[in-house]
Write a protein that binds this DNA or RNA. Structure first.
Lengths: 146, 146
DNA sequence: GACATACAGTTAGATAAACAACTAACTAAA
DNA sequence: TTTAGTTAGTTGTTTATCTAACTGTATGTC
């Protein structure tokens, strides 16, 4: 016997990630309403750079769980919007280091507040210890398949 | 105080749905390896039709949590691959009822087995009661934001 | 130094998603 | 029965993802 407790009807919903889709849409709407012209995907890249500026594209791939072409194009679009700039590494000319512009730094506080608001709405009525368990399960799933 | 127990570093990962992305990629690879030429998104539509054939596009929207243009194009592609066909409703000529072809019926067993395999891999080492809690939390999140 | 190999990033082509604007068909109310 | 509003589905545009194939740079071995 496996430990798969999902009936088939529930399986689908887990696979397709309806919950995370709902969260992403909610946050995107908050961005739009606030007049912030960035996508959730772009925000997820900026988020990594707010944590540590000057990451390489490869590091952004790992951090955001995206492949190289996706990051290339996300950085392309972020660059067009003047939110980041590519700086060739001095020590290894294959590498681009990605740096935030002043404009992008300004976005941090507002977007993080909106993200927190979305999460609060999402988790309304969920006891903290259950959130922790859910988080742990998702982490294991991620580790199992990575 | 809110019940948001996420530190900022964890927040991002929850929002972006890395776990469900990992699951989807794993299953897509299984499809590819098995020579099944369908996408996860197409499979999610077929899945709904295996449960009940002849749904309208609108019903597929609700069931798969996608908007109308997405379903229009998914059905377009499924139709190109001869996996479904659009049948105009007799009673309301605005409505297309979507029916599976014989070819699509043949896909059910194999793809469901692969999906179950992916879920078993994903949930390896997770106690059943924790899976249930995770599922419940995700359901609440979905309901909160829908 | 010359070569094979690995690595960082880009490009091309297909599918998918979000949003807005649109057409066609149904419904309800004057 | 005309009109207004609603619903089902489509189309156009932009952004994002995936798998291939590609360029350029670095590394390690002979």
């Amino acid at each position: 016997m496996s430990n798969n407790q999902f009936k088939k009807g529930e399986l689908y919903s887990f696979i397709t990630g309806k919950a995370s889709t709902a969260i992403a849409r909610n946050l995107q709407k908050k961005f739009n309403s606030a007049g912030l012209k960035i996508t959730i995907e772009q925000w997820s890249v900026l988020y990594q750079l707010w944590k540590e500026d000057g990451k390489s594209q490869q590091e952004l791939c790992s951090a955001t769980f995206r492949d190289k072409p996706s990051i290339t194009r996300l950085v392309d679009n972020l660059e067009k919007q003047q939110l980041v700039r590519r700086v060739p590494s001095e020590s290894d000319r294959r590498i681009n280091l990605i740096f935030l512009t002043k404009q992008a730094l300004k976005l941090q506080e507002e977007t993080m507040q909106l993200a927190e608001a979305t999460l609060n709405e999402a988790l309304e009525g969920v006891p903290p210890d259950r959130i922790d368990i859910c988080k742990e399960v998702l982490q294991i799933v991620y580790d199992n398949l990575r």
